[in-house]
Design a protein around this nucleic acid. Structure first.
Lengths: 105, 105
DNA sequence: CATGGAGATAGGTATATATAGATGTTCATA
DNA sequence: TATGAACATCTATATATACCTATCTCCATG
């Protein structure tokens, strides 16, 4: 007698590690930021992100911090500017999933 | 002069619609439930889910409700049992993303 | 070294979420 | 119709999150 599926469930440790990352991304403005950075392909300054997201400076800054803390983005100061970029490939993969399905329904 | 990327950003409406769904899924126990149901491929009773998730009855029941409210799962009573199954294909896609990356790092 | 632009943080309030224990409901069967 | 198994919901508490306004830091430049 054979179980329906031989492949084991993803272990809880992994799920507990991954859930916060997904959670971090699951926010409209943060998704927008990631989408923008993904398309630009290169680091972008906070001001550029603010414009692209069409949101308030403080809020964008807060969201950037959250994304950076979670490791989704990385930042680097260049003179007067701080440039952010995507640091977590999974975030891109997730976005791909969303984009593929974003037209549906 | 041409913009770096011609493809437009995913619009905020879509992001706002999708974010809660991702958020709903971004929880260890709920991911576990989805993973379990995905592998089984067929509807499973709450008791089966409780066993697979190795969690308390009330908590599992609550999570099932959250997943059902969000449209990720659907349920159907069969006599004494209520059988749940995945109703949202995006959830499966998301899980696929996770599974692919779950080994890394 | 004063100033202003770029960005970060603080503090407050409202709201949402997670979990747990206790209690309800539903249904099959004796 | 009483009972128990299978689920669902209620209530309470602790904690996290979102968002806003105001303020603070950092750095290039005059």
């Amino acid at each position: 007698m054979i179980a329906r599926s031989e492949t084991p469930l993803i272990d809880m440790e992994t799920l507990e590690r991954i859930a916060p990352m997904i959670r971090t991304v699951a926010h409209p403005l943060r998704l927008r930021i990631i989408d923008y950075l993904a398309r630009e392909g290169e680091p972008r300054s906070v001001t550029e992100i603010i414009n692209a997201a069409n949101a308030e400076q403080a809020i964008v800054s807060q969201q950037l911090r959250i994304l950076k803390d979670q490791g989704v983005l990385s930042a680097r100061r260049e003179g007067n500017y701080v440039r952010y970029q995507i640091a977590e490939p999974s975030a891109l993969a997730l976005l791909e999933c969303i984009r593929k399905r974003s037209g549906e329904k």
